[in-house]
């Protein structure tokens, strides 16, 4: 499950940040480290939420440490 979620996260990131090569995305990075500004980060979270069919409030995504944390949180939401 978490690999499928990671694929979706990477897919959305590369759509919102087309200049970031997919192989440059590491789980230990924050979206900020990839050059995502605050609007990009909103679009990325909205994109993965929509693609995974989740209705979780955006506020729940306020404390993400890095992309691994985002994937783990999305995986947990999907299992609920």
């Amino acid at each position: 499950m978490s690999e499928a979620v990671r694929d979706v996260v990477h897919e959305v990131i590369t759509e919102i940040l087309p200049t970031v090569p997919a192989d440059r995305i590491s789980g230990r990075q924050h979206l900020r480290d990839l050059g995502a500004d605050s609007v990009d980060r909103v679009e990325i979270i909205l994109g993965v939420r929509e693609r995974l069919g989740l209705a979780e409030p955006l506020a729940s995504f306020s404390d993400l440490r890095d992309i691994d944390h985002l994937v783990a949180f999305l995986t947990e939401l999907g299992a609920r």
Binding site: S38, V39, R41, V42, I45, P57, L58, A59, F61, S62, D63, L64
Partner: peptide, 26 residues
């Protein structure tokens, strides 16, 4: 209740961009 941005003293603001924009949108 959330602490997304605030002005704790008369000389500076604090702001958590993600928390604030996510709250604005929710």
């Amino acid at each position: 209740e959330t602490l997304d941005s605030a002005r704790p003293t008369p000389t500076f603001d604090i702001a958590d961009a993600d928390r604030s924009l996510f709250a604005y949108l929710d």
